[in-house]
Computed example of a mutant assay.
Amino acid sequence: MVQYSPARLDASFAALSDATRRGVLEQLGRADASITDLAQKFHMTLTGMKKHVGVLEQAGLVTTRKVGRVRTCKLGLRRLEEETGWIERYRQLWAARFDELDKVVEEMKRKEEADGRNKSE
């Protein structure tokens, strides 16, 4: 069984739980950007964007570099493999459960059809 780091998963999912932060990641997936550019794109204050970037940075999803007065953001080195593995484990579990449910429903339908044919005969 794969061991997951609860602190790492918590940080990642907390960072990804916010629509603005997910948008920032999408934007940085296209091109690096300054905090000022991100703040303008998301119609928020510099302080607000700095907080969002800080959460993403703590989770390792974004890195920043300051040159002069400009802080540039880019995607971090983490590729979310641990998070993807955790999600996949539960996706497989739910898929198996739904497959079993489908079998039960199909069996119930067959019994209903058989009962209906027997009553009409």
Rank of each mutant, 00 (worst) to 15 (best):
35 I>Q: 02
36 T>A: 12
38 L>I: 08
39 A>N: 04
39 A>H: 00
39 A>Q: 01
40 Q>G: 08
40 Q>F: 02
41 K>L: 10
41 K>T: 13
43 H>S: 09
43 H>K: 05
44 M>L: 04
44 M>Y: 04
44 M>R: 07
44 M>D: 00
45 T>L: 00
45 T>S: 14
46 L>Q: 08
47 T>H: 13
48 G>Q: 14
48 G>I: 06
48 G>D: 09
50 K>R: 14
51 K>E: 09
51 K>I: 15
51 K>S: 11
52 H>A: 03
53 V>D: 02
54 G>M: 07
55 V>A: 02
55 V>R: 02
55 V>I: 14
56 L>D: 02
57 E>I: 13
58 Q>R: 14
58 Q>Y: 13
59 A>H: 00
60 G>D: 03
63 T>I: 15
64 T>V: 07
65 R>G: 11
67 V>F: 09
68 G>Y: 06
68 G>Q: 05
69 R>L: 12
69 R>N: 15
69 R>H: 13
70 V>S: 05
71 R>N: 12
71 R>V: 11
72 T>K: 12
73 C>M: 09
75 L>N: 03
78 R>Y: 04
78 R>E: 10
78 R>S: 12
78 R>G: 04
78 R>V: 09
79 R>H: 01
80 L>F: 07
80 L>Y: 03
80 L>D: 00
82 E>G: 06
82 E>H: 03
85 G>T: 03
85 G>K: 00
85 G>E: 04
85 G>A: 06
85 G>C: 00
86 W>H: 14
86 W>V: 10
87 I>R: 01
87 I>L: 14
87 I>M: 11
88 E>T: 14
89 R>Y: 13
91 R>V: 14
92 Q>G: 10
92 Q>E: 08
92 Q>K: 12
93 L>D: 05
93 L>F: 07
94 W>R: 12
94 W>S: 07
94 W>H: 10
94 W>G: 00
95 A>Y: 06
96 A>D: 13
99 D>S: 05
99 D>I: 03
99 D>K: 05
100 E>N: 06
103 K>H: 09
103 K>M: 09
104 V>G: 01
104 V>L: 13
104 V>F: 09
107 E>N: 06
107 E>L: 02
107 E>Y: 04
108 M>W: 12
109 K>W: 10
111 K>T: 15
113 E>H: 11
114 A>G: 02
114 A>P: 03
114 A>N: 08
114 A>T: 10
115 D>G: 00
115 D>L: 11
116 G>I: 14
116 G>T: 13
118 N>W: 11
118 N>H: 11
119 K>H: 09
